[in-house]
Design a protein around this nucleic acid. Sequence first.
DNA 1: CTGGTCGTGCTTCGCGTGCT
DNA 2: AGCACGCGAAGCACGACCAG
Length: 442
Amino acid sequence: MTNREYLEIEKLVDVIIDNRGKTVPTSEFGIPLIATNCIKHSSIYPTFENIRFIDKNVYDTWFRAHLESNDIIFVNKGTPGRCCLVPDPVSFVAAQDMVGLRFKKHLNPYYMLAVLRSKEIQTTIENNHVGLVIAHLRKQELVKLKLPILDEHTRNKIGDIYEVISNKIELNNKINAKLEATAKMLYDYWFVQFDFPGADGKPYKSSGGEMVYNEVLKREIPKGWDVKKLNALTSFLSRGISPKYTYENKGIPVLNQKCIREYGLKYQFQRRHDNVAKNAVNRLIKKYDVLVNSTGVGTLGRVALVRWLIENEVTVDSHVTIVRAIPENINIVFFGYSLLTKQREIEGFANGSTGQVELNRSQLSDINLLIPQANFQTNFEEFYNPIIEKVSINEKQNYELASLRDWLLPMLMNGQVTVKDTYEMVEEKLGMAAEQEVKYVR
DNA sequence: CTGGTCGTGCTTCGCGTGCT
DNA sequence: AGCACGCGAAGCACGACCAG
C-alpha cells in the first residue's frame, strides 16, 4: 500500500489564474478564445470548437493573468470539474467560467490531471456544486477540494502512464486525421475536379478530357459517367430499434445519435439492448453501411461510415437510419465515401421547421450521386480501403487504451495494482514497452 | 412490424446583474 | 473590482406514442 494523504487545492497550487466575472471583448481575428465547451476529457488539451478571437491589445490589457503551459484549466460552470492541460506553446486564452490551476513544481501535471479527472474527485465535485439552473462550483469550494497525494515516485509513475496513454490516443487521432485528409484530397481531385488519370495518364479534365453536360446536375461531368438517385443504389434504408436498455454486460451494442460524430462511430457512447429481438436481428449494421442521424434540428444529417464493428452484432436505435448500397449497382466503398460528402445536403433537410424535425426519407432517396465508370470506383476502393484498415486499428486501440486508463487509475490510486503490473498491461496494448514509450513521447 | 411524429426534459450556451 | 450566480434561449437526445 502506498502512502497517501488528502490535501486541499489551495495548499497545492502556487497561483490560480482567474479571469471570471466579466466579458472579454472579442474581435473577428486574432488570438483564439476558448470556452468551456472546448474542455473535454476525451482529449488532454482543449479542442478548438466554436472559438472566438481577441486582439493583441485586449490580450495585453484585459486579463488579470495569463495561462502557462502545464497549468490545468478547470471548468467551474456548466459541467464543473472538466479539466484539460495547457499545451506548450500556449496558443489560446480562456475567459469566463473557468480558472487555471498552477500546481507546485514537484507535482507532476499529468498526475494532477489524472487525479482531477478521476471518478472519485469528479463525484466529489458533483456533490459539492451549487446552482438550481446552472451547476456551479464556487471558487471557495474549489480551493478546499481535497486531492489524494501519493508519494513522489508513485505520482510520477502514474503521471507517466497517464501521459503515455493520453499522448498515444492523441497521436492516433492525428494520424487518422491525416489519413482521412489524404483520402479527401484524392476524392476531390478525382471526383470533384475530375482530374483522375485519363487514358494517357494525364489529369483528365485539365488536359482536355471530354465533358458532357448533365441535365440532372446542371453541370458538366466526364463522358461515360452517370448520375443515379440513392434509391436506385440501395437495398436497405431503415431506422433502428426502440431498445429496452440494460446496464449489464449482455445483449448487443446499440448506437445512438451521440455515436455519430465526425463521419465515424464513437463507440464509447454505445448502450446495450438486452434481448436480441427479431426486429434487431434484421437491423444489424454491416461494414461500409452509412449511418444517418435522423432527428434534431442541429444534429439531423450527421453521417458516419461504418469502418469497423466493435462486436459481430451491432444495431442502432430508432433515431439513426442505416443506408446500405447494393454491391451489384455500385462499389460500396465508393458509395459510402460519396455519401459522407453529402452531409451538408442531408443536413439541409432539417430546414424550415422550428419544432422537431425528422429525416425525410423521400428526400434522402432522391439524392443524386455521381457514378464514375466501374474501374474508377475500384481504384478509389483500392486507395481508400487500406486507409480504412489503418484508421480502424487506431480507433480500436484508442478505445481499448481509454478503457484501460479509466479502469486502471482508481486501482493505481488505491494501491490495488502496482505500477509494474500496469506497465505490462499498457505494453500489451501498445505493442511496445511502456517505459520506452514514455521516452518516445517526450 | 414499419415508418414515422410528438412532447419533454436535460445540457449547454451567451450575456450579463448585483452583492460583498 | 472581484466574484457568485442565474436568466432565457437554443441545442440536443430520447422515450412515448401513433396510424396503417
